[in-house]
């Protein structure tokens, strides 16, 4: 009888069916046109070439990809400027994604142990910050981290700077690039960049980890406790293994999302440490205007993102099969 319950009501016939087919066809057309064609265009144009002063032309050349990987003047000389940008894209994205997930995990776990009402309140708060535009968030951190306001000013005024100088930590900070001769400075620094990027995706990390953690049976942890496991042991032996897959999936999604980050990089990162996303912007709509090259960089970024997603899926399938 369970079989019977799963089967839906008897199939409805003609007019609805015909309309359904029309709507279905229409949706496929829209989805293909709007979800796939733009990416297809990027791919096609990435093989095109730039016309000086007149935009670009269709072509089938690999010049843009050559330029990306070995430089425009290859084989006379090899530059790795654009590869370097890709490296920074990856580096920021990995560090910020891992940082966000690592800090979001205990937070989300604690949140799911609260009442449904409290959870709803936290979710409202997180969703509000999550949806807040990158421009506002960068604005906020910029005020906090700017050299003539926020934290540096606070450090100097409260004497923390002097204390740091006295204890010798100031020189350590200088070595890390977090201080100029007079005071601490966070702009521009990798620290500020990663902090802002991590902040940007932190609510996403919580939202993405939330389903897995909220479905975690609390009696699992309780059972471990009754067997004498300390809280830390419970986390390590019960909770972490149970959420390993969502943890990896979340990190990957945040990573892909961060590959496209733009404003935070331009504001907080040193120009020598700018990313592919920034370069894409410059080429497509910014100062350098080389749309085919921008498209080629977009393709590389997409391939990188796709490769990581596929790799992640492989890994998770493997560990699932092993489990």
């Amino acid at each position: 009888m369970t079989v019977a319950a799963q089967i839906g009501p008897m199939a409805e016939v003609p007019p609805a069916l015909r309309w359904g087919a029309v709507v279905n066809l229409l949706l496929w057309a829209i989805a293909l046109l709007l979800c796939l064609v733009p990416f297809g265009l990027v791919l096609l144009i990435s093989f095109g070439h730039k016309v000086e002063g007149a935009g670009w032309d269709w072509a089938f050349s690999s010049e843009n990809y050559l330029r990306f990987f070995v430089g425009a003047n290859w084989p006379a000389e090899t530059t790795s400027l654009y590869l370097g940008q890709l490296y920074w894209s990856m580096r920021y994205a990995v560090v910020a994604a891992v940082l966000a997930v690592v800090t979001a995990l205990p937070f989300t776990y604690l949140m799911t142990r609260q009442s449904r009402r409290a959870q709803a309140r936290w979710l409202v708060f997180l969703l509000a910050t999550l949806s807040l535009s990158e421009v506002f968030i960068v604005m906020g951190w910029d005020i906090i981290l700017s050299n003539n306001s926020g934290l540096p000013m606070l450090f100097a005024a409260s004497g923390v700077t002097d204390w740091l100088k006295d204890t010798g930590w100031f020189d350590v900070l200088r070595d890390w690039g977090l201080a100029n001769p007079r005071n601490v400075k966070f702009k521009t620094s990798e620290f500020a960049t990663v902090l802002t990027l991590s902040y940007l995706v932190w609510p996403y990390a919580v939202i993405l980890l939330y389903p897995a953690l909220s479905r975690l049976d609390p009696s699992l942890a309780e059972a471990a406790r009754t067997m004498g496991a300390r809280p830390w042991t419970v986390a390590r032996t019960v909770i972490l293994p149970a959420v390993r897959l969502p943890l990896m999936g979340t990190t990957l999604l945040l990573f892909v999302f961060l590959l496209g980050a733009y404003v935070a990089i331009t504001v907080f990162a040193d120009p020598s440490q700018h990313t592919t996303a920034v370069s894409i912007y410059e080429n497509v709509r910014g100062s350098t205007l080389n749309a085919p090259f921008g498209a080629a960089q977009s393709v590389v970024l997409l391939v990188a993102a796709g490769a990581f997603l596929v790799l992640g899926q492989r890994l998770s399938r493997k560990s699932q099969g092993g489990a």
């Binding site: 279905n24 979800c35 733009p38 894409i280």
Partner: peptide, 27 residues
């Protein structure tokens, strides 16, 4: 598949989708 297709733009870096749409609409 249709649902998956519809979710692609949201799942990929928006800058790439933006570049693609820029070309798309100019055509």
């Amino acid at each position: 598949m249709l649902a998956g297709l519809g979710s692609i733009p949201f799942a990929l870096p928006p800058i790439v989708f933006g570049v693609g749409l820029g070309f798309f609409w100019s055509f």
